[in-house]
Amino acid sequence: MRKIKLVLSFFCLLCVLAGCWRQEDTVPDTQRGYNIYRACQTWSIFYITNKVDLMMKFNSWYVANNQERNTIKNKWFRQYDIVEIEHGVFSFYDMMNRYEYAFSINTQGKSMADEDSHWTYRWYSGNASPKNQAIGYWWDKDMIICSSFRGCGWVDLHVDREVSDMPLELCWRVSMAEKDSLHSFIDWRLDLQSAEMPQTLFEGDFYISGSGCYKYVENYNSAWHVDCETETYLKYEIRSPMCWYASIGNVDDLCWYGGSMDLEAFDLQGNALPVKAEYVKPKNVKITYKGVSQVWNVQSGRVVE
């Protein structure tokens, strides 16, 4: 009888423990603020690596002689066939993808290093392109995130040389603007600590200042038909220049190690989420969100302080 009582007590204890057992709520207070910051960084890095750096690499091809061009093409543009469609305008055709048009670069016949250069990177954003271009879109189940500013259409990223106040610096204005919406734009100033034009952006440190706004379009319908139901915007202003560094040859390791920025996520229903991000130490960023400040390690994605 005693044993039965003991077994029954143990059984009931197990049941009660199972009923009460739960995971602790481990989500940090600034998690959403950090997510917003990460979204901004993800898209900023996308434009830096996929557009601006590519233009810089193309510049090294553009100014090189024929022999050097082959070497540079094999190094960075192996998958593209580069065709000069008119003077100073080059179209890139993707040989790995049915020779489809990928993008164009308009040099206006000048090197990017020239003081009055105005380069334009043009691509078609959206799957409705006659060439069925997927560039510019990330498909995520039923949601579309537009990397461009419009649902579908030609997008131009301008990189215009500017004169720097500093003697050993190269400087460009990087801009992109959607004609249809006042919300979406990029307006950066890119400073490179180098007296000579580098072959790639990642040869040294570079600084980005300015502001921008990314638009996210959520599509509830089929993946092949863009029907924007909701729009979310991520506006940011860089308060002090963001210093970037990348291990050479490893753009995945691109990290921000200076500056601060104000971000604001908002939708067209009047909801807004302000976030403040400040550099603390390498790979550590202080996020302030809804009155709470926490330091995050961007590599581990965890709160460290």
């Binding site: 481990t26 989500v27 917003i36 996210y216 989420l273």
Partner: peptide, 21 residues
């Protein structure tokens, strides 16, 4: 456990209520 860490690329979730269990 409840996890908000994955919603950085889901902007339509940003305006959902932040909750704890």
């Amino acid at each position: 456990s409840d996890d908000l860490s994955g919603d950085f690329d889901r902007p339509h979730n940003w305006f959902d209520k932040e909750v704890y269990r």
